[in-house]
Amino acid sequence: MARILVQQEDFDLGQEIAALKSDNNNIGAIVTFTGTVRDLDRSLKSMTLEHYPGMTESELANIAQEAKQRWPLEGCTIIHRVGRLAPGDNIVLVITASAHRQAAFEAAEYLMDFLKSRAPFWKKEEIGEESQWVDAKDSDNVALERWLK
């Protein structure tokens, strides 16, 4: 079973790893990815994340299920924050656990690539007095295509 959470609160990486490992000695490799709010030129005031309650959770669960069919995972956690975030704040956490590292590495990338192209989240940036929706990137579709070959 995957642990899927959509929440306003921050997450604790150490606690999430400990929860995944507890009572499971089959795990020999844990990979984590944390996405954070970037502000390259120090102009960003905030980033607000909107989502589609219900569909978000079911899409994330589907993506996790697909990863489990593809790799021998011992555990999988996806936590995505919503609401108003500040530069440097955590946005998303993906953890994959497996007996060996290759499955954990690959599954973590797979989860992030599909999350970015399928999970219904939208980012809005507040820069100065202006607010604007973030555009989707073509590079995210390119990242996805390698898994579909």
Partner: peptide, 8 residues
Amino acid sequence: FFPPVTGG
């Protein structure tokens, strides 16, 4: 209905 998604 929504624009292309931008999460992650």
